[in-house]
């Protein structure tokens, strides 16, 4: 039954994400589940993990800068 298989697979995937999330917590990676699952799917699609790590770091920096800027902007707007 394909449906069963599928749900089984999904459960396994869910479990994998759980485990990996736990590992990432141990390692202080500061990844939330969503980011993690995006990363996993990217890697499963053949993305180089090292590059992905760089990207995540870069994007975080961007995000922080954006936050600073937006907070500055709201301060200016006032």
């Amino acid at each position: 039954m394909p449906g069963d298989e599928r749900s089984e697979k999904q459960a396994a995937a869910q479990q994998a994400v759980d485990i990996l999330h736990e590992i990432s917590t141990i390692l202080n990676c500061h990844l939330d589940r969503r980011t993690l699952s995006i990363c996993i799917s990217m890697i499963e699609n053949g993305v180089n993990p090292e590059a992905l790590a760089t990207v995540v770091k870069e994007l975080r920096k961007e995000g922080q800068e954006a936050q600073i800027e937006s907070s500055a902007a709201t301060a200016r707007r006032r």
């Binding site: 994998a16 202080n28 890697i43 790590a53």
Partner: peptide
């Protein structure tokens, strides 16, 4: 998951960030 090592490696790279 076929690329378990890569995921672990990613986590390793991101560790203590």
């Amino acid at each position: 998951l076929n690329q378990k090592w890569a995921i672990l490696y990613l986590l390793y790279q991101l560790s203590d960030s």
